[in-house]
Simulated scan of single mutants.
Amino acid sequence: MSAAHSFAMPRLPQERQAGHQAEEEPDDNAPGPPLPSGATIDLGAERESSNVDEVLDTLDSELVGLAPVKARVREIASLLLLDRVRRRFGLSANRPNLHMCFTGSPGTGKTTVAMRMAELLHRLGYLDRGHLVVVTRDDLVGQYIGHTAPKTKEVLKRAMGGVLFIDEAYYLYRAENERDYGQESIEILLQVMENQRDDLVVILAGYEDRMDTFFDSNPGMSSRIAHHLKFPDYELDELTAIAHLMVEQENYRFSPESEAALRDYLESRMRQPRFANARSVRNALERARLRHARRLFDGEPRRCGKEELMTFEPDDFLGQPRR
């Protein structure tokens, strides 16, 4: 028997095997005795008690745009909340498959959405801990025989009760190398995603075309993914709004001329290779802070007020390297 097929992770918080019930603390999400068929439930109050709107509102406030993604997250939250209400009436249904795939360019908010998804699933009682573990191939795959299984198992152990986010997941599979150890990690992941999906949600992330190729080469993985969320690239106005959020968090602001200079830079940068959406905006602002500081300290010493310490000018964005 291979290492992949011999792997078993302890279940949290209870053993979910027929004929065995482990001791556990009371579950606040347990449905209790079924309500009579003529009873009604206030869905608004049920939604309020779950605190899901707090998570959804946070997602809206911290991420600009992404309307299709946010709508899909709300749909998933509604389904899970309704399932909880249905259980109150004794209407049983299989636990939905929650494994997901996030596709899109770097800097489009995939990790942030994964973090809020983990929190959402925890509040609705679908995950015991609701934490997020972010990994890449290097965290899962070893470089020599016998190294991959322990690495993958250790990551899964840390992620149990939460969400495992595998960035650039297609690098797990290298078709050109028959002796690559990534397939061993995939086999372990497949087993856990099927047999312990009550304990763990796996999110695979990466570029859409490469993820399509990965799924074509690994149909077992594709069949275990229920939700595909596509993260679009940001438009110029959205990138500008993101920049405003970032500078406000750091107690800076734009002069009208400096905002125009930033927009010119971003419009040019969007046409260049390796543009990374919000990450490129952050990089531009970090360089602007350096130029702003140098500008204020260049020349003869002088006095400087609060407004000048806070305000970017066009020179802080002109001549920025394109990366």
Rank of each mutant, 00 (worst) to 15 (best):
M1L: 11
M1Y: 07
S2M: 05
A3P: 04
A4G: 15
S6T: 07
F7C: 12
M9P: 13
R11A: 15
E15V: 10
R16I: 09
Q17K: 10
H20R: 10
A30D: 11
L35M: 09
S37D: 05
I41N: 02
G44D: 14
G44V: 04
A45C: 12
R47K: 12
S49G: 13
E54C: 01
V55R: 00
L56M: 12
G65N: 05
G65L: 06
L66H: 02
A67I: 13
V69R: 08
V73P: 02
R74N: 01
R74F: 04
E75H: 06
I76H: 00
A77Q: 02
V85P: 06
R87T: 10
R88T: 04
G90Y: 03
L91D: 07
A93E: 12
L98F: 07
C101W: 00
F102C: 06
F102W: 01
F102S: 02
G104C: 09
S105C: 12
T111V: 06
A114Y: 02
R116G: 05
E119N: 11
D128R: 08
L132S: 03
L132K: 00
V133P: 02
G142Q: 13
I145D: 09
G146T: 08
T148S: 12
T148C: 04
P150E: 01
T152D: 05
V155Y: 03
K157F: 02
A159G: 07
M160N: 13
G161E: 02
G161F: 00
G161K: 00
G162V: 12
V163E: 12
F165M: 09
I166Q: 10
I166K: 11
L172S: 11
Y173A: 10
E176R: 14
G182L: 00
E184P: 03
E184G: 03
I186W: 01
I186N: 01
I186P: 00
E187V: 03
L189D: 11
M193A: 11
D199H: 15
D199W: 09
V201R: 03
V202G: 10
I203V: 14
L204I: 13
G206D: 06
D209I: 03
T213L: 10
F215Q: 04
S217G: 09
S217E: 15
G220Y: 08
G220Q: 08
I225L: 15
A226R: 14
H228W: 04
P232L: 13
Y234V: 09
E235N: 08
E235T: 06
E238M: 15
T240N: 04
A241P: 08
I242P: 01
I242Q: 11
H244M: 09
L245N: 14
E250R: 15
E259Q: 15
A260K: 09
A260N: 07
A261W: 05
L262C: 04
R263I: 09
Y265E: 02
E267W: 02
S268P: 00
R269G: 05
Q272A: 14
S280N: 11
N283M: 10
A288N: 01
H292Q: 10
L296A: 11
D298V: 05
G299C: 04
G305I: 03
G305Q: 05
K306L: 06
M310P: 03
M310Q: 14
F312P: 00
D316G: 14
D316N: 12
R322W: 07
R323I: 08
